[in-house]
Amino acid sequence: MPHSRLLLGAGIVGLLALLPLSGSTYLMYLSTQVLIFVLFATSLNILIGYAGLVSFGHAAFFAIGGYGCAILLRTYEIPLLLAMPAALVMTAILSALIGSLCVRLTSYYFSMLTLAFGQLIWAVVFKWRSMTGGDDGLLRVDSPSWIDTPASFFIFTLLVVTLAMLALWIVAHSPLGRTLMAIRENQVRAGFLGVHTRRVQLVAFTIAGTFAGLAGALFALFNRSIFPDSAWWLQSAEVLIMVVLGGMNSFFGPMVGALTLIVLSRFTLEVTDYWPGLLAIILLATLFFFPNGIAGLLKAKGKR
């Protein structure tokens, strides 16, 4: 079973790698964006789907990774292959710090604290003008010449996201992943099997934050710029809804959610700017009518 899944995944990646042959820049842009959000959403699902911890501030780490990479690259002129890992280390440290405060109490506190810290990161980004450019954002974040074209950047993103998704798949299916699910089911019992439950959750939080940071770094390179909006709660809400819509009880659900929302937002924003309202309706519909998301719907169909 995992073997066939692996083959399927390899097949999809192989097909995607052929995309530049189509010659459509638009398609390449769209696919790059989808890939970035697939990674972002899957990183969040480690928390929601596996640990049962609903983060309302995941965009904070997306922004930290993005700003970190952009600032190192642009302000300090550090080469990309150093800047990106450095930005990830920075995101990991900050996720561990913030995470250690967020997992101290119940899941309700977790949700409140993630929103609060998310907004704090946004406020810092917004007000620290000398470093982040404030609400003007950081412009001219230039990629090195070898990933300068839409096609080469797409291939680069495909490579990074594929590797990252593999890593996240392993995390989800590791002893840690299984332990997270056990903690979600019954924290007291897990604790009395000898599990230091909070520390396990903290490790998961740090992993999730770091991979969100990777997605953020790619996003900054992709747009050649980054703005405080990337840390704003609406960004957190969007990725959260990708996870719920796709299906939080499945590893691959958030990928479907990311694809659906990105494509939908493209079309919607051409007609109206009431995107948040539409997001809310999508979220409500999911909660009441298909709580296991699109992946849940597909699975139910498959069983019949």
Partner: peptide
């Protein structure tokens, strides 16, 4: 949603935030 997992209640009230922020904007 009362009988359901708390995740759904959290997400529900969060959906209200999104919805009404756009209603007010409109």
């Amino acid at each position: 949603l009362y009988g359901r997992d708390e995740v759904y209640q959290l997400l529900f009230t969060f959906a209200l935030v999104l919805l009404f922020s756009d209603v007010i904007r409109g």
